[in-house]
Computed example of a mutant assay.
Amino acid sequence: MIVDSHCHLDFPDFAPDIDAVVERARTAGVGTMLTICTHVSRFPGVLAMAERFPDVWCTVGIHPHEAANEAEVDAETLVRLTENPRVVGLGETGLDYFYDNSPREAQRRSFRAHLAAGRLSGLPVVIHTRDADADTAAILREEREKGPFKALLHCFSSGKDLADLAVEMGLYVSMSGILTFPKAEDVRTAIADVPLDRLLVETDAPFLAPTPKRGKRNEPALVVHTAAKLAEVKGVAVEALWAATTDNFFTLFDKCARPTGSAPQTDGTV
């Protein structure tokens, strides 16, 4: 099996055919999907998806685009929202200086609150960062000094310095369909030295459909194309890439139950 570690199944793009979307994912070999919260105010709809499908789990958090639009929440409030057994992580949170849809200081406050919630709960934090590598790195270092947390740089499109910092801090890096784009050579170079045991794959559906489906609505079934490209970049067999990224997901999101019959590798090889 393979895992889609980041999608948005509650988005209206999927409302007309959500059952078919999930079934196509299963047929493609996607055994687990993580649907990601972007608005705390819409969290009930995100949670409903995780409660509707046994192979779907969810997070709770505020996207940096919404940091000034959503009511500001503290770490303790976020932790309380993770008490449902279907909630296995926090976010997505982080910094987006490309669009600047929310003031940067509001983004930074929200980011720190999510990392604090990660320390309190022990759950991983899903981090979005775009055109904000320096501030993201600085906040990660400052917050780590207050205590450990688990985290994932999702939809990685940053530079090698941030990838190296993630490895140094024991964080994970997730690759989206961007990895397959012809002009994304910088991304492929940046993750070349990221160890296989720190990598995940995702769709970010309904966005960023991978080649050869670029331009269409993305969905979890298409994560297999990103996985194939990542296997090529890392120089491993596709089957080994599926096994490694699946194991990595359940190591990081350890509140998420692994499907029966999807045993982790035990011989130390990939």
Rank of each mutant, 00 (worst) to 15 (best):
L9P: 04
L90K: 03
L200E: 00
H154M: 10
C256R: 00
P148A: 15
N69P: 00
P220C: 05
T129R: 08
R217S: 10
E70F: 06
L95Q: 05
S174T: 09
H39V: 00
P264S: 12
G261E: 02
M169Y: 08
C37Y: 02
F11M: 15
P44G: 11
I62R: 04
D74R: 12
R80F: 00
V40T: 15
R198G: 06
A138Y: 00
Y99K: 15
A48M: 05
T93V: 14
P212N: 14
V88D: 04
C155Q: 04
D96F: 07
P220G: 04
T77H: 13
R258L: 03
A138H: 12
D17F: 08
T136Q: 07
F11Q: 13
F111V: 08
R26F: 00
R217Y: 08
E70V: 11
A116W: 01
R108T: 13
G235V: 08
H6L: 09
E70Y: 05
E142V: 12
L120H: 08
K229G: 01
G91Q: 05
S5V: 05
V194K: 07
D133N: 14
D254K: 15
H65E: 07
D135S: 14
S121G: 09
S176E: 04
D17R: 13
F181E: 04
K183C: 02
T27M: 09
V238A: 13
T269I: 12
H8N: 13
V167H: 10
T226V: 09
I178R: 09
A243I: 00
R198A: 10
P148F: 05
P16Q: 13
P206V: 08
A243Q: 13
V30H: 01
T226L: 04
S5C: 09
E143P: 05
D74A: 11
M169R: 14
C58G: 04
Y99V: 10
L230G: 02
G261H: 04
G177T: 09
S110M: 15
A68F: 01
F11D: 10
K146T: 11
D96N: 13
V223F: 03
D133L: 11
V60P: 04
L9R: 05
V224G: 04
P148L: 10
V270R: 13
I62S: 05
G45E: 14
F43N: 02
I36S: 04
T203M: 04
A240M: 06
F181W: 06
D10K: 12
H6I: 03
V236S: 09
V187K: 03
T269M: 09
T269W: 02
T226F: 01
T93I: 11
V126F: 01
T203Y: 02
A75M: 07
F181K: 09
G94S: 12
G29Q: 07
T27D: 12
A184P: 06
R26S: 14
A50I: 01
L230T: 02
W57G: 01
K183P: 03
Y172T: 12
T27A: 15
T180M: 06
V223D: 00
A20T: 14
H154Y: 06
A243V: 02
T180R: 06
L241R: 05
E83G: 12
R119S: 08
H154L: 10
I18C: 14
P44E: 07
D4C: 06
N101I: 00
G268T: 11
R80E: 15
